[in-house]
Write a protein that binds this DNA or RNA. Structure first.
Lengths: 223, 223
DNA sequence: ACAAGAATGTACTGGTCGGTTAAATCGCCG
DNA sequence: CGGCGATTTAACCGACCAGTACATTCTTGT
């Protein structure tokens, strides 16, 4: 009867796997073509299953898009969890965080593109997902703790805003991937070679470190 | 014969004006909905004229899109020409350039969105336009000159790469607009209030100034 | 083993939307 | 003023594509 492995199930009819299969195909397709540019038939074609299943599990195109967006966020944010910064000194931790973020963004272009697309749509779908909001809150908490420690031991300015810091790190890391096509069309592809990326990562790390530093050269502004 | 005003022509049948009318409507529509999300009928509706005219002047949707992209670039880059930096000291000029770019991006959201969309499409249409390439080359020239002067009088590091500097300025100014929707959905809209924008502009200016500065605190990196 | 429901395949449809056809109108030149 | 090319209008078409109807197969509880 139950003879063989009932560990889960071995062969046909595995809903979870089907869902994941669809989501992964959906992320590729949406990332490549945008919300309205994406074709449900094309997503189905990339799948082991059929178009019918997409509607069965996700209702409609928008439902699929929302689920794909959530999945993309979850994957990327979970990838950040490996990093543990508490063991490092504040500045070393910051350096590590920035370099990691820079690389992590670069190795997840589909996520970047999903976020770009969501921005085109004014974050209408993101707003409905408290899952995603939670994911990001913890990201901020991590930085806030880092700032606290840095202020405490005097290596960072005490007035650094964690959200602003996160913003700055994101901006530089995100733009590097999001605007590569236009930028390299205008200024040459060499700018995105591996060597150049290493140089730019150093530049980005340095820029962030300098802007939180307690010790600075004279203030630049007038007045 | 030529009796009245032949200044141009006063009433019906003014091809240039029609073209411009269409382009302006197209930029709004494409910026709002993306290339495939944009509806030609909707563009026509925003126009004084009809859909047929769009095809008459621009051939097809893609031709219209390309023209709209070029126009958006031209408008924004021409807006930058007012700025003359040669009269200022290098660092003052840089400060002015960064602050201006930050504001200018913010006041041209449609342009930003067009570029986002073009990036989604891997800059496929931008690549065909040497008009746009020219516009951007002069932008780089301006910065290169600035770097040269800065290196000469010792206020800037001599090894600053003009393209990299342009990249950094663009990244911070661009992201501020492009990712406002998702960022404010995740971290609160207050982050984009006018007050906060002023604070962030200061932060951006400062970050850029620091990273080109000849005088620095101890280098952050290891090794 | 069998009913009941969950999961899946096939074939189709109705609306949407980029693009077109054919004819009218305008302005200019002789 | 008459004809010719540039411009404009209105109605239309055909492909594409999100979503569905319906039949079928698998899984599980009893």
């Amino acid at each position: 009867m139950s003879g063989q492995a009932r560990t889960r199930r071995g062969w046909t009819q595995n809903p979870e796997a089907v869902r994941e299969d669809i989501l992964s195909a959906a992320i590729s397709e949406f990332a490549a073509h945008g919300l309205s540019g994406a074709r449900v038939d094309r997503i189905a074609a990339r799948t082991e299953t059929s178009k019918r299943m997409i509607y069965y599990y996700f209702g409609d195109k928008l439902g699929l898009y929302s689920a794909a967006l959530e999945t993309a966020y979850a994957e990327v944010r979970h990838g950040e969890e490996t990093l543990d910064l508490d063991r490092l000194s504040p500045m070393a931790a910051l350096e590590r965080l920035v370099a990691f973020t820079f690389d992590h963004h670069r190795s997840n272009p589909d996520f970047i593109r999903m976020v770009m697309i969501e921005n085109i749509h004014n974050a209408a779908h993101l707003s409905n997902s408290e899952v995603i909001r939670d994911l990001n809150t913890t990201a901020i908490d991590r930085i806030a703790e880092l700032c606290r420690r840095g202020a405490e031991d005097g290596t960072m300015r005490p007035d650094v805003d964690p959200v602003a810091l996160h913003w700055q790190i994101s901006a530089l890391s995100f733009f590097n991937v999001s605007n590569e096509p236009t930028f390299s069309a205008l200024f040459g592809e060499a700018f995105f070679s591996d060597d150049m990326q290493i140089a730019r990562r150093r530049m980005v790390v340095e820029a962030v470190m300098l802007s939180v530093g307690a010790l600075r050269p004279a203030a630049p502004g007038p007045s």
